[in-house]
Every structure is written in C-alpha cells, then in structure tokens.
Write a protein that binds this DNA or RNA. Sequence first.
RNA 1: GCCCGGGUGGUGGAAUGGUAGACACGAAGGACUUAAAAUCCUUUGGGCAGUGAUGCCUGUACGGGUUCGAGUCCCGUCUCGGGUACCA
Length: 927
Amino acid sequence: MEYAFRDIEKKWQEFWEKNQTYRVENQSELPKYYVLDMFPYPSGAGLHVGHPLGYIASDIFSRYKRMKGFNVLHPMGFDSFGLPAEQYAIQTGQHPAITTEQNITRYIEQLKNIGFSFDWSREVRTSNTDYYKWTQWIFMQLFNHYYDKDADQALSIATLTETFAQKGSKGVHAVCDEDAPVFTAEEWQAKSEQEQYEITLKYRLTYLADAVVNWCPGLGTVLANDEVKDGVSERGGFPVEKKLMRQWMMRITAYADRLLNGLDTIDWSESIKEQQRNWIGRSQGASVKFQVDGQEQTIEVFTTRVDTIYGVSFMVIAPEHELVPSLTTPEQKEAVDAYVDATKRRSELDRMMEVKKVSGVFTGSYVINPFNEAKVPIYLADYVLAGYGTGAVMGVPSGDQRDWNFATHFDLPIVPILDAQKDIDQQADATKEGQYINSGIINGMTYKEATQTLTNWLEERGLGKGKVNYRMRDAVFSRQRYWGEPVPVYFKNGLPYLIDESDLPLELPAVDKYLPTETGEPPLGRAADWKYKGEYEYELSTMPGWAGSSWYWFRYMDPKNGNELASKEAIDYWQNIDLYVGGSEHATGHLLYSRFWNKFLKDIGIAPEEEFAKKLVNQGMIQGRSNFIYRVKESHPVTFVSFELKDKYDVTPLHVDVNIVEQDVLDVEKFRASRTDVPEDALFIMDGDKFVCGWEVEKMSKSKFNVVNPDDVVEKYGADTLRLYEMFLGPLTDSKPWNTNGISGTFNFLRKLWRLFYEDQTGKYLVTDQQPTPEELKALHKAIKKVGEDIEVLSFNTSVPAFMVLANELTTLKCNKKAILSDFVRILAPFAPHICEELWVALGNEPGTVTKQPFPVFNPAYLVENSFDYPIQINGKVRATLTFAADAQPKDIEAEVLANETVLKWLEGKTPKKVVVVPKRIVNVVI
RNA sequence: GCCCGGGUGGUGGAAUGGUAGACACGAAGGACUUAAAAUCCUUUGGGCAGUGAUGCCUGUACGGGUUCGAGUCCCGUCUCGGGUACCA
C-alpha cells in the first residue's frame, strides 16, 4: 500500500469540516492564545505559492500551541473592499460585490486545500454590511471625540463643550486645527448652536479639511502618503499630483507620541519599528519668529539647530507659503509669479527627479534676526516643503549642506559659527563640537549650553519656544471611489453631521456606472434618490482600504454580534493578538493605522490593551523563478537551443511557463502543444537527451510565466508535502525564489515515514508493541527537543530536517515500534496534519484526536551519553578524535591526549605551550 | 546620501565562539528488474599525494584584528536586497 495522499487529504479535510474540529469557543479553562494572519485581499488571480507561506507557519504554530494546552484563536477572513474589483467593474459593468464573492469562493477553496486549522465559522469580510456597520460605527466614535493633551487620551466632544462653557478655549489643551479660535467661557455661551458646532469640528478626531492631497487622475481618487511610491500610485502605477481638496482626515498626529513610545513595548522586527519611527519622524527643536523688516507680520521657522541662529544669512519659504503675496515687492513680482507658477506645474515626480538642482527666487523683502538685528533676505525655493514644520526655514549655510548649496548659488554670505567647523568654503560642516564664534550671547559656549540659553531667551520674549515636530501628517480618509464603506455623514447648511446610530449600516447604494459623475462627483453621486431622511445630501466619498482592516482582529472574537463590534466578554477573554504574521510591506500603512485605531478604541473603553499585536513576524516574499529558452536569431525553421549550448549561437531568451519545466529541463512535447506561436517544424537542439532552460529570479507574475498555483503542487505531491516544503525552503523571514527542485525531498520523507508503518509492496502493517531500545528513544527525543525548541522560535526550516533525520534513523534501526511512532506522529502533526491523522488512526487511536494530543515531553535522560568523542586540535586544527568518559576530568584528558600517538607526532618532541580542555566540547593543544 | 538586513558547495540551506557544509535537491557510479518506475547502496567544496586504508594543503565576498580556537566577535573595503529621502 502506497502513501495515497490524495485520498488521505480529502478524507481528513472532509472530516475536519464535518466534525468542526477547529471550532474555538470564547469560554475555556485553558489559557488563550491568538494567532492571526494578515487577511488577504481576494484578487481575481487567486493564491499563488507565495501567499500560503505565512499561513503555513502560523498554522503550525497554532496547532503546536493547541497541543501545548492553549485555547487557540486562529481565524481567517477577507479584506474585500478595494480598487481591483472596482476597476474590473468599471470595465465590465459587473457589480464589484459579485466578482468579490467569486474570488472569495475561490480563495476559500484554495485555502481549504492546504489543510489550515482555521475556525471558518468566524470568517469576516470587510465588505459585508454586518461588518462595515462597525467600521462606520468606529468612524462615528472618532467624530465624537477629541484628543485631550492633559488626559493624554481621547475624550468625548461633550467633555470639550462643557469645558468651553466653563473655562473657554484656554481651559482646553487639545490637538486641533491651527485656526481654532480663542474665546472665553462667556463668548462661548454667547455663540449660537451652529457656531459652537462649527468650532467643535476643528477638534474632532476625524474632520473635514482643505488639504493638499495626492490626487491620482488615473484612478480618479486621492491616495494616502503610504499609497504613493516614487510619485506614482502603488496600485496601478499611475502618476500622482498635488491638489487642494476638501477631504475627511484622521487626526492620527494626536497619537504620534503614543505610537512612537509604544514601539518599545512590542516584539516586532526592528526594521518595521524603525520604519514606523522614521515615518512618525519626531524631531525636537525650536520655533523662532522673525520680524519682517518694515512690516507688522512675522515669519515662524522650525529648526532643530537653534544654536546656529547667528549664522543665518537668508530665509527661505515654500512657494505655497501664505505670506508670499505680501512679501513680494513690486520689482520682484514678475520673477516670483513665474517661479510659483513653474513650481505648481511640476509634478511630484519631476520635483523628486530634480532634487539636486538649486532653484529659488528673491522676494524683495527681509526679516530681522532677533538676536543680532541683522537684515536677512527672504527667498522662495521649492526645497522647502509647505507641509512640513512651518513651511519656512532659516538658512545657515555653514552648518547645512542644502543651505550651503543655496548660498553658494545665490552668492550669500557663509558665516562660521563654531570653531570646530572645517573647510566651510568647500562644504557645510554640521558639527556640534567646539565653541561658538560670531554668535553674540553664546560666544564661547558649547552646544548644550547654547541651545538652552537661546531657547530661554526666545521664550522670555515670546519670540519662540522649544517645539517637537513630526514628519507624519494627518491621514486623508476620503476616497472618491465606489467600492468602500460609505461615510456615515450627511450635510445640513453646509456642515457635516453624523447619521443616527440606529440608521447604521449606511449601505452602499446601487449606481448605474462606477465612474465619477459628469460634474466630477464621486460615483456615489450617481445613486438615485440617495438622501438622508429623504432630504439631506450624504457624503459622497467612501472610506479608504485601510478602514476595514484597522480593527478586524476584534471582529473575529465575536463575528456574529449584531449589537456591538464584539462583546465585552469576548474581548476580555481574547485581549489582543499574541502572534501576528504578515508582510512587511504594510509597515507604514495597515500596521500603523491599526495601532492608531486600537489606541483610540482603548481610550473609549473597548480595547483592553494599548497595542493590538504583541508579536509580529514578517514572512519573506516568495519571488518567482523564471525559466528561459533560447531562440536562435533569424533561424528557419525556428530553432531553440539548450542552455549549455546557447553561447555557440546568437540567441534571444524567451520566458517559458515554469509549469512545464522540471529541474530546469523543458518538457518539449508539452511546450509544443501549449504554444500556438511555435511552428510545428520548430527544431530543438538538445544537450544529450535533455533540453535545459536558463533561469532568473523575478517577481512572480503572469507575464513572466513563473506563477505557481498551490493547487497544482497539492495535486502532484499533496498538501502535507507543500506545507513541509514551504517551511523547508529557508528561514520564514527570508525572501526567496520559489523553486520546486527540492520538493521531492519532502515528498520522499513522507513516503519513508509511511513505510515505517506499512510495507511498500504488500501494504502489510508493520507496527509492533515491542519495547523501544535506548538508541531508538535517543533518536526520538533528539527530535522532540529540536522540534519543540524550533517551533517556539518559529524556526520551521530547521525542524523539517529533524523529522527527516528521525525517519532515516528509524529506517536504519528497522524500528516500527508503536511507542516511538506515536510520538513521531504527534510532533509532526502540526506540520503535516493529514498524514498524521491517518497514521494516528492506524496506531489504533480515535479518529480526529491527534490535534488534541499533548505535545510529547522531552526527556533529557534518553540523551545522556556516558562517553564523548573529543576532537583533538593541534593549534586549532583537528588531528584526531579520542573518546573519553562523559565525566572525565580535564587533567586526565590532558594527560591521555599528550600521550596519544598522533599528538606526539605533531608535537615533534616539543612541550606544548598550553592545553585547552573544554569539557564535552573540544581539546586544543597549542604548540 | 542615510537607515536596516544579507554574502557559506552545482542548488535551497545547517552550524550556543569549539570537527564548516547537517538535511534536501541535483549529479556520477552501482544493486534489484526482461525493461521501466519505485526502492536501496556508494561518492559528491576545491586541490595534491597514494593501489588502498588514508594523509596533507586550502576553503564561509575581500583585507586586517581579537582569541588556545572565528562562518560566528571587532575595524575597514566591495557587493546584493529592502526601506527612506530636499524633513529644516
């Protein structure tokens, strides 16, 4: 009887489904453990072999944790709102819900094919109304809260208005819009309800703002910063331009410090944490107000080097700066207008391309340096960004390279400010060493003293203060698209209001087309008679893709709850994610927004923990491994040449489908049959009897003919082999190309395991009840130890060889003993659940119980050796091996080693300088 | 430019500072078979010597260093991958 993986796997998948083997309850005596995979967007292409890598790892870990006595939550769902389904809808007119449904069906089929232990009864889909009802509900909570700096958390808008009524705006230290007005309690009380409401809009955690946004005409929508890569859209690669639009925003900046500090408390990869730190971009510095010469107004700059202020020789403001018109003198107007125009016309991409070019224009005005009364010219230049700091910088050419370039280009003075600065006529020197020169009140001081002195001086006069700046901006939350959550907001007298909670979910209306309206409104503008209470206009934009994924881990805890996003009991039990597995590409998107929403949900009493995921592991990307065949140029008939011989001809490489290539050898017949563009008389110059292909690592994509579907691998070798092989391929976190060359190794291992139970030809059952020998127990416990330790640290690639070694050893020992094989099956079950279920039953156990078995306990006694083979080194090189008792004393070992024949030969009669004996390790004789 | 990771046989990859190359693929040779498949056995980093058992030299990107001992730690260089960038 052969290892009939197809029958076995089908049988157990059906068994698990029928018996709800992986169903998890919210009540248990057992400790909880929450293992989550980043849920996929169900694309039309289906899963390729890269997708399951993380799922297999998390599944092994979940199964292991179950065997270790945990109640494990391990769910799966779908991030089912998104652009591709909508782009497809635009082309075909088919409702995105339909294609999404089809794709999900396909995904579930593929996932079930691999034997994951997901509790499918908890599946969620972000595009279902009973799910997005709660996404909308969270939006409403954000709208109803503001961030209070004193409490350092979100508080209700009711608290805000109460404080306003009692203490006026001074009584509130909140994160709010720049233009939030100042008023007394009396003034507040005197305002109309509408006026008061308008003021609160400047405080809410989600708010409307005219923001400079990334507008992507190709997709017809705005994009968040993290959705733009290199000036083009991440999805589709369309150009992106800056545009001023009224948008819903999320006040994520209110949480900047908590997002930053929380990173120190979580077990995430250093690279992800570093990316988030950079994205948040906290910088400590000072703001300084410069009086404009001859005018009332001041220009405020942000600087991290206030100590260099005596070296300021110019000031630069962004071309978009609001003071540009008032600072421009009549003589300079023409030049300034031309520059501003030119900046506007340039796309973000152009601007990035021309980073090194110095450009700018003088406004004609000056500011006065508050410290030395120096008159300093004001320039416009596009290296100053309107969106960062105050949109204005002080130019200190001796200490900053950009400023130095600018000063050199415009022939402005370069003043040294520290005696430690070197070669500043060649380049800027940003040193903080030495003592200040040419620097008024800080002359002779060092960096620390100077910074403190200057900041105090500024604060005393109200001209500036120490300030913290963030690179992170508030997140744009509107998308001018159809296939997303409708924003639960309507407009009355031009102001946004939330719909009643009882009206949730606000469902997506039907539209005739998925395109913007003729007047440029988003697709929702096409919905007929879509008005709140039949009267008020709804918000027409929808939420971004990250909305639904920013809280989904809670929904799995209680997926069918119609009254709450999840019950308090469920959340109290499951708390947060213990292990989260997913791609590192979500570093500054999903993973940051999720932390933000979780913190907010904690502030309003829903989330129990500050961080949503204690540990995060980023699985590596599986790249494609393309195969090439080589066509001889201008050959008639068309001729292809095998890889080894291609250098003898002038050839063009062509991609060939990797699915008809094995071990880089092309199946020529299949190739002929599959390609209509290959003429029947085509010639193949073989290398012996083989036609060998070349290969290259590329992105896995249809156009490169290198996509491998897990279904095909499962069909050929089975799910257990696929699972083992994906783990065997290398460390989980490494990126690696998919290469089936070694898959027969894991397949052979499973067959070898099978042969420990059943004789190959006859199918005879071989398992006996004999007592295991110490040697067999040693082999087994070596594996138990190794595998247990490896799983704990997610080192699955090293546990697979441990299984292979055990199978090899047991084969050599001709061991078919039940006592040994039972434990073998149990340690292997998390990796290869189907075959282990089958063999577990073969050993006489109840069907379906292997998943609930305790993980075998390692017993060190079986590994105790009474002797050890010491490698004997002479000057660090191994020259001999000698066996000593495990408890042999170093001095005895030394004596015997020095008497050894080989050692004496190398000693050549000399006395060794030193003999190093490391017990149970090594002996090194130094001559 | 800056910040993170990496660089080990033909290939994927192992290796608490202690015998580098486990395990697997591939390759070569052999056994079984009418034959094939399957299975099993042997060899397999490179080089040199020997009929042989075996012995020696060399080897973890490169150059230095620390150490009795370095793939592993330190310094410098090259190189590949990822992230990020007029961020004041």
